[in-house]
């Protein structure tokens, strides 16, 4: 039996996962071009983390569970139902942007409809928020869980400790997924933490911790699925660490070669989860060369149309400045 069937994923589901992860990558690549052409002001990239993001989202009950994604989670939000056009609208900060009507920093996703909490710029603030949402689910006796992500550097904030501790004490239906991409801007993992794995921290809170290869969609899917079962069974929160590598500079304003080598990045690119995922699909006859070509063309078209639409869409009206300060 194939690996994906073993863990309960249909052929269609894995193909969909790949399509969404690839869409996230191509969209991100386009946004770099738009940024360099001066069309969008700022970009914080998902490249290298798409596979784990999409796999994790697929392990949730989409439409039912709550999420508090962080700024790299293009894969998560696409998988949960945000469209390429929605993402383009937020990149251009246009009035129609469903995340915030152009009021947010780029990459600060949020959607009431998709049960996705609007994120703020100070990192890790979303962790205690997600724990609060977990408590609300428990109090209402809802079957839903609360899924939150953050970078590994962000686990050093006090909010991480305070949120994780409360969630564990009250056995809340919460999954904290740490997307360990080895860097917090310029600061490498070993300058940030002395423990071997971020998931080691779970022990201190009395919750389950697990580290998985973020480039392996099935490992991530399984870890989040298991964690979600625990959460739904009233067994409390989990800390899942997905290890990957940030393939781009931190943001469109960063020069990563001041603190890491081009060779290191090249090596990481060879292990890109998107490449191994494609290889897996091909080996299992789920993706032919022809289908791949069609897929790439369809994604390109979707991005082209979204870009055209978003670029032409109206900007938010400065007269709306006072809207949303108070009721």
């Amino acid at each position: 039996m194939t690996k994906h069937k073993e863990i309960g994923l249909s052929d269609q589901a894995v193909v969909d996962m790949y399509r969404i992860a690839l869409t996230a990558r191509r969209l991100d690549e386009r946004m770099w071009l738009l940024n360099r052409a001066g069309k969008i002001p700022f970009l914080v990239s998902c490249q290298g983390q798409e596979v784990q993001q999409v796999a994790a989202a697929f392990a949730l009950e989409r439409g039912k569970d709550y999420t508090a994604p962080y700024y790299r989670d293009v894969g998560v939000v696409l998988a949960l139902g945000m469209s390429v056009q929605d993402l383009m609208l937020q990149a251009y900060a246009k009035a129609e942007d469903p995340n915030s009507g152009g009021r947010q920093m780029p990459g600060h996703f949020g959607s009431k409809k998709l049960k996705m909490l609007s994120g703020s710029s100070p990192v890790t603030t979303q962790v205690p928020h997600a724990v609060g949402i977990g408590l609300a689910c428990k109090m209402r006796g809802e079957d839903a869980i609360s899924f939150v992500t953050l970078g590994e550097g962000s686990t050093n904030q006090g909010d991480f400790h305070e949120g994780a501790n409360f969630a564990a004490v009250h056995k809340l239906p919460v999954i904290i997924m740490v997307e360990n991409n080895q860097y917090a801007i310029s600061i490498s993992l070993k300058q940030q933490v002395a423990c071997e794995k971020i998931s080691d921290r779970a022990v201190g809170y009395g919750m389950v911790g697990e580290t998985v290869d973020g480039n392996d969609p099935f490992a991530v899917y399984q870890a989040i699925k298991t964690a979600s079962q625990r959460a739904r069974n009233g067994e409390g929160p989990s800390l899942v660490e997905a290890i990957s590598y940030r393939l781009t500079p931190h943001s469109s304003d960063d020069d990563d070669l001041t603190y890491r080598t081009a060779e290191e990045v090249r090596e990481a690119k060879a292990k890109d989860g998107l490449l191994s995922f494609k290889k897996y699909l091909k080996e299992n006859n789920l993706l032919s060369d022809k289908k791949e070509e069609e897929l790439e063309a369809a994604i390109k078209k979707e991005i082209d149309l979204a870009n055209e639409y978003a670029e032409a869409a109206p900007s938010p009206d400065p007269d709306t400045l006072y809207q949303g300060v108070y009721q």
Binding site: G101, P316, D317, P318, L321, Y322, G324, V325
Partner: peptide
């Protein structure tokens, strides 16, 4: 500046 949260980009110059 007016008493709002810091303005979105298009309103920055006005704000």
């Amino acid at each position: 500046a007016p008493d709002t949260v810091y303005a979105f980009t298009q309103a920055e110059e006005v704000w």
